[in-house]
Structure formats: C-alpha cells, structure tokens
C-alpha cells in the first residue's frame, strides 16, 4: 500500500489534460500504466482510483486538496463529495495515514468533540452549509 503513489496519480491527473483524456477513455488502463512505470499501488488502491471510490480514497489518507479535484473531474457535486468522505469513514473506519491521521481522524462527530475540548468557542458548523 502506498498513499504516496495514490496521491501522485491524482496529482498527475489533476495537472494534465492528456492524463485526464486517457483516464476518461480507459481508467483501468491508465492506472495500470502508472503501475507499470513503477508506482507501488495495491489492488485496493487501484480499485478505489478506477471506481472512483471517494470515501475509500479519503479513508486511505488522500489529502482533500488533491481529492476534491478528482471529485470535480467526475462531476461529483460539492455536498455529495463531502458526504462520500463521511460515508467512507463510517464504512471503512478512521483515516489510515497522512495528514488527517496526525491526531487520528474518526469522523466529523468525534472531531467536533475533540475540537470542543480544545477551546473552540464560537466554532461554526452549519449542517446545511458545509
């Protein structure tokens, strides 16, 4: 398993119209080509990229700043994108690694509780707006 290469693939896709065109034409072949060039991706990671499984990718540790563009590429609307990540945590468990695992990411409720314990007076979180 390599979070680095999962994110590297998305980084390349986000930057390159050529990679985007190839991915639209044949997602599996595009990811497999990336693997054949040396990227260390597990079957789980390949499947999540090809599907695409936004919730699984977030669970694996993908940075949202990379993942949100992958969602937009797939025409996934913003609120749907956020919900897919929440569903991914519910289904697969806390984020495994990466920046969100720094202090353990176990979902929005747990995070809100943690934030409340850290003098977060006045925090804003409007369900309809997020």
């Amino acid at each position: 398993m390599s979070l680095y290469y999962v994110q590297k693939f998305l980084y390349e896709l986000n930057r390159s119209e050529q990679v985007q065109a190839a991915f639209r034409a044949d997602a599996t072949a595009t990811v497999e080509s990336f693997v054949s060039e040396g990227a260390d991706l597990s079957e789980e990671e390949v499947a999540a990229l090809v599907m695409p499984d936004i919730g699984k990718l977030f669970h694996l540790g993908c940075n949202g700043q990379i993942l949100m563009h992958f969602a937009a590429f797939h025409q996934i609307e913003w609120q749907d994108y956020l919900q897919r990540m929440r569903d991914g945590i519910d289904e697969h468990g806390p984020v495994r690694e990466g920046v969100y695992a720094m202090t353990g990411y176990e979902g929005t409720d747990a995070h809100s509780t943690a934030l409340g314990q850290n003098s977060a007076v006045g925090q804003q979180n409007t369900n309809g707006d997020r």
């Binding site: 949202g64 700043q65 929005t108 804003q124 979180n125």
Partner: peptide, 15 residues
C-alpha cells in the same frame, strides 16, 4: 479551516 474534508465548513472563530 478544514478544507475539502468532511469537516469543511467548520470554523473556529475564536481562534
């Protein structure tokens, strides 16, 4: 801010 995560929209105004 917690951009592009499930917590997007959470803001710690006091902080």
């Amino acid at each position: 801010h917690w951009p592009a995560t499930p917590d997007s929209g959470k803001i710690n105004e006091a902080w």
